[in-house]
Simulated scan of single mutants.
Amino acid sequence: MDRAEIKILIVYYSRNGSTLKMARQIARGVESVAGAEAVLRTVPEVSTVCEKVADSIPADGAPYASLRELETCDGLALGSPTHFGNMAAPLKHFIDGTTAMWFAGALSGKPAGVFTSTGSMHGGQETTLLSMMLPLMHHGMLLLSLPCNEIALRETVSGGTPYGPSHRSETDSELTEHEKRLCWVLGERLAKTALALKANRT
C-alpha cells in the first residue's frame, strides 16, 4: 500500500458500541478517497470522583488518542454519545487537554466534523453536535456539515442532521442505511477537503 498523503483522525468515545459503529463508517468514507488514511482512536474512561483515567492501553478496540496524533493529523472527526445534550465527560476531558495546541494554533485551518449517537429521537443530538463544535471553533478548525442535497439527509427517519451524522439507538443498535451513508459522506468530505487544502499549500 502506498504511503497516505493525508491522515484523518477519528476520535470517539463509545460506551455501548453505537458511536464506534459510526466511527468505522466514517473511516470507510475517508478511505474511499485515494491518498487518504483513517486513524481510529478512542479515549479512556474518567472517574467522576478524582479524574483518574483508565489504564494506558485499552483492553480491546482502538488505541487511545494521543495529543501528538491530534497535533499532526490533517483532519478530525470527533464523536460522542449524547449525555444530557452534551458530549460525554471522557471526550471533553481529552479536548480540555489541548490548551497548548490552542496557543500554538496547531489545529487552525484543518477540516473537522462531529457525530453522535443517542438513545431516543429527542435525546439532544443537535445540541451535542453543537457542543462538540465549540472547542473546534476555538481551535480555528474548518467545520464541515452534511450537504442539504444529500438524499439520505432528506429521507432519514432516524438519525441524521445538517450538523453531522447521528444515530438513534432507542430500538436497534444497528445503524440504518441512511445513517451509514451520512457517516460515509462525512468521512469522504473530510478526506477530500484535507487533500485540497494540502495541495493548495504546496
Rank of each mutant, 00 (worst) to 15 (best):
A89T: 05
E150W: 09
T171W: 11
E150T: 11
S14D: 08
S14H: 06
L142F: 12
G17E: 06
A59D: 14
V39G: 06
T72Y: 11
G113K: 07
D2F: 11
F94G: 00
S47F: 01
L70E: 02
F103A: 15
L130N: 04
P44W: 11
D60R: 14
H139M: 08
T193N: 08
A4K: 12
T176V: 06
T171R: 12
A23P: 05
E177D: 08
G119Y: 06
G35K: 04
Y163C: 05
S158R: 01
G160T: 00
A191K: 05
S32N: 10
D96S: 03
H93K: 07
T176E: 04
G61S: 11
L144A: 13
A196K: 14
F94D: 00
A100E: 10
L20F: 12
S117M: 10
E37I: 03
K180G: 04
Q25K: 14
M1V: 09
K7S: 14
M133L: 09
T128F: 08
R201Y: 07
L142K: 14
L143I: 14
G123M: 12
Y163K: 09
M22K: 05
G123H: 07
L9F: 12
L129E: 03
H167S: 14
A54C: 02
M141L: 12
R68V: 15
T127D: 12
L67Y: 15
K21Y: 04
G61Q: 08
S80F: 06
E174Y: 04
T176Y: 03
T128A: 10
M101F: 11
T128P: 05
T193A: 05
S166E: 02
G29T: 05
T127G: 02
D2K: 14
A77M: 06
S131V: 02
A152Q: 01
V39K: 03
G123C: 09
D60A: 14
H178P: 02
E177Y: 01
T127H: 11
E37R: 15
L91N: 04
R154N: 13
G119F: 11
A106D: 03
M137C: 14
N16A: 15
